[in-house]
Design a binder for these strands. Structure first.
Length: 701
RNA sequence: GGGGACAUGGCGGAAUGGUAGACGCGCCGGACUUAAAAUCCGUUGGAGCAAUCCGUGUGGGUUCGAGUCCCACUGUCCCUACCA
């Protein structure tokens, strides 16, 4: 803990709606995830079995940017405590000569210091804070600013003096909370400059523009070009000018190239009962101390009360739990009553799971054997929180010698959600699907309420949620169709990374499939039967089922369950075409073989049916314990191919040839085909492209 | 504003650069039934009697061949956001 945590004191400033939050000293515990920012970005490259999307989201979330951190010296007397100057950060050092003012965040210490002496500044800062951080209206939010009266000196041109403004669009949390503004090449700076009539000086000339004529209107120019109006930087491209500016500032000793991250340290303190206690004891004499190891884990009390009239953490109100003795001086002390963010727990549970009975939190031998997790499956909503925290904690645990891997999850699959249409009545209230009757007329659908008959509006297809009542109770589905049919439908309807639209007619299709499958098992007489590969119908069936094994196996391993299910449907149709009734010995033998394989292939999709079918075949044990079937390569192989013949890219016929037939032979057969010859009449064959076992294309004119 | 993904019949969706629409749903037709439900069989991208033609959001390009690759555009969804 001491390795990972630091301490910050928040004194109530920065809280919104301060009226409801009691002003008090809080000890907030943070985990220093920012120490791992580089490692977490660089490690993404090794996660080749993660979706590109999630890796991009994490990279953006960490938000590494390279730039320049430097100091503006004040012109004239510096404010108290700011003799060194004002630190700013930029990713566009190349535009330094386009600077027309310096901006600081309303929460910047300098701004707050000025507010103490100046009521107008104080009022302005208060106004900024009021003007919602409420995300939605940030888009159109008006730029607000106030000149502080302070002036700073341009570091590369001491003759230029820039005003310092407090501006509401500058974030205290990012960089240094202060910027230099270059309105010509930054839209926010431009909006601000236009409003307060500040200079706009372009320093990047777009290709093909005349330097004498180029001006900035309402849009900042952020594209490529050559630097001008910038003294020694003139003529350089943007990248070269960045490098040059950084080295000039560094030579002056006024700053240096710096990497800044959007990622913040992870505040893990929660004022809640439900979470692991933060193992710290506060002593008035010794300060905060970690709970000694032999007293771990700190266990939550069982007898807390949740009083709706007293919001907040019940641990604070518990009569005895927090009182303890200081591990340092032995005096009276209090336990930390904050608990850990539950994301802390989900950041290492997988390591614990490798030996859940071990005395230590993680048994390293077991963890070394099982970690990393081969395949992790979850919703994409965890892309930047859980999945980033788990990567961070895993690296931290490795650095502590508790794990050997850096990355917890070798493979990641993000599955979709089950969705359903949402319905509203005339009064605008949400209505459950169970209460809605849909009628279809041609291509249009309409809905009425099942009991009242009032018209219902059919809304969008959305993720099932209680608030919109677009949920179908699983119990009702299981009752009507059984769990197997429900499971099969969810797996067969859409690829698993995509959302599944729940439809009753869809699940009925799956339900029918389970019945048809059972009919095939039920109608099969007891054996034994003798294989007869001379029996054409029997051979077709045997080839079919041995090819099916490969299809289904591949579809499961490749997360293409819907395609696998489609192949099972296909094969069932083949099986139905060779019914047991009146079948030959050969067909009965082939059917018996097919059913035995089929029971195992359907077990991941319809496990209960598979067990029932397995028992019906008289097999011992459970199908779930049976080995996955292996295809006989001789039977699975395709010995004949139907090749389409294209003429100038259009399909004009097909030929049936042996698999693997030499190209010259195929060409000969193709050119001799009657349909092909008819189409070639009057044309000269220029070229014949034969793709072995796939297609023939004849180029002719 | 930034980033990403996607776009295929009435619907969900198939398709290592090689027969577009597998499989399912729905619709339509038929069998069974006194009738209905269930079940079974069959048809089903569009136009056309047919040969055939046209078809994967729009416009270009690469290729013998493009749903698939490249460029531009349009639309939808997701993430993120005054991040300097």
């Amino acid at each position: 803990m001491t390795v990972l945590a630091n301490e910050q004191v928040i004194d109530g400033k920065g809280w919104r709606s301060g009226a409801t939050v009691e002003k008090r000293k809080l000890t907030q515990w943070f985990l220093r995830i920012t120490d791992y920012a580089d490692a977490l970005i660089d490690g993404l490259k090794t996660l080749d079995r993660w979706p590109e999307k999630v890796r991009t989201m994490q990279e953006n979330w960490i938000g590494r940017s390279k730039g320049l951190k430097f100091t503006f010296k004040f012109d004239g007397e510096a404010p108290d405590g700011h003799a060194a100057g004002l630190d700013v950060y930029t990713t566009r050092p190349d535009t330094l000569f386009g600077a027309s003012f310096v901006g600081i965040a309303p929460e910047h210490p300098l701004a707050e210091q000025l507010a103490v002496e100046n009521p107008e500044v104080q009022a302005f800062i208060a106004e900024c804070r009021r003007g919602g951080t409420s995300e939605a209206d940030i888009e159109g939010a008006e730029k607000l600013g106030r000149d502080t009266g302070l002036r700073v000196v341009h570091p590369l041109d001491p003759t230029r003096i820039l005003p310092v403004w407090i501006a509401n669009f500058i974030l205290m949390d990012y960089g240094t909370g202060a910027i230099f503004a270059c309105p010509a090449h930054d839209q926010r700076d431009l909006d601000f400059a236009r409003k307060y009539d500040l200079p706009v000086l372009p320093v990047v000339l777009p290709p093909g523009e005349d330097p004498a004529a180029f001006t900035i209107g309402k849009e900042a120019y952020v594209g490529p070009g050559l630097i001008y109006n910038s003294q020694a930087l003139d003529g350089l491209d943007i990248e070269a000018a960045k490098t040059e500016t950084v080295s000039r500032i560094e030579a002056l000793g006024q700053g240096e190239g710096a990497t800044v991250y959007r990622l913040r340290d992870w505040g893990v303190s929660r004022q809640r009962y439900w979470g692991c206690p933060i193992p710290v004891i506060h002593c008035e004499v010794c300060g905060p101390l970690p709970v000694p190891e032999d007293q771990l884990p700190v266990v939550l009390p069982d007898d807390v009360t949740f009083d709706p009239d007293k919001p907040g953490n019940p641990l604070v109100r518990h009569p005895t739990w927090k009182h303890t003795t200081c591990p340092g001086c032995g005096g009276k002390a209090e336990r930390e009553t904050d608990t850990l963010d539950t994301f802390v727990d989900s950041s290492w549970y997988f390591a614990r799971f490798t030996d859940p009975t071990a005395d230590a939190p993680i048994d390293k031998t077991a963890a070394d054997h099982w970690m990393p997790v081969d395949q992790y499956i979850g919703g994409v909503e965890h892309a930047v929180l859980h999945l980033l925290y788990a990567r961070f904690i895993t690296r931290a645990l490795k650095d502590e010698g508790l794990l050997s891997v850096e990355e917890p999850f070798a493979g990641l699959f993000t599955q979709g959600m089950v969705t359903h249409e949402a319905y509203k009545n005339a009064g605008g209230e949400w209505v459950e699907p169970a209460d809605v009757v849909i009628s279809v007329e041609g291509n249009s659908r309409s809905a009425i309420h099942a009991t009242t008959g009032e018209p219902i509006t059919i809304g969008d297809i959305e993720k099932m949620s209680k608030s919109k009542k677009n949920v179908v109770a699983p119990e009702d589905i299981f009752e009507a169709y059984g769990v197997d049919a429900a499971r099969l439908f969810v797996m067969s309807d859409s690829p698993p990374e995509r959302d599944v639209q729940w439809t009753n007619s869809g699940v009925e299709g799956s339900w029918r499939f389970t019945h048809r499958v059972w009919n095939e098992f039920d109608s099969q007489p007891a054996g034994p039967f003798t294989h007869d590969d001379a029996d054409a119908a029997a051979l077709v069936l045997r080839k079919g089922v041995h090819r099916l094994i490969g299809f289904v196996t591949d579809s499961i391993e490749g997360f293409r369950f819907n395609s696998g299910v489609a192949r099972l449907y296909e094969f069932l149709n083949m099986l139905k075409a060779a019914p047991a009734e009146g079948a030959s010995q050969g067909v009965l033998a082939a059917r018996a073989e097919a059913l035995e394989i089929l029971a195992r292939l359907i077990s991941p999709f319809t496990p209960h049916l598979a067990e029932e079918a397995w028992a019906r075949l008289g097999k011992a044990g459970m199908v779930v314990d049976a080995a996955w079937p292996k295809a006989d390569p001789a039977l699975a192989a395709d010995d004949e191919r139907v090749l389409p013949i294209q003429i100038n890219g259009k399909r004009r016929g097909e030929i049936r040839v042996k698999a693997g037939l030499a190209e010259a032979q195929v060409e000969k057969i193709a050119l001799a085909d009657a349909a092909v010859m008819a189409h070639l009449e009057g044309l000269t064959v220029r070229k014949v492209i034969v793709v072995k076992d796939r297609i023939v294309n004849i180029v002719a004119n």
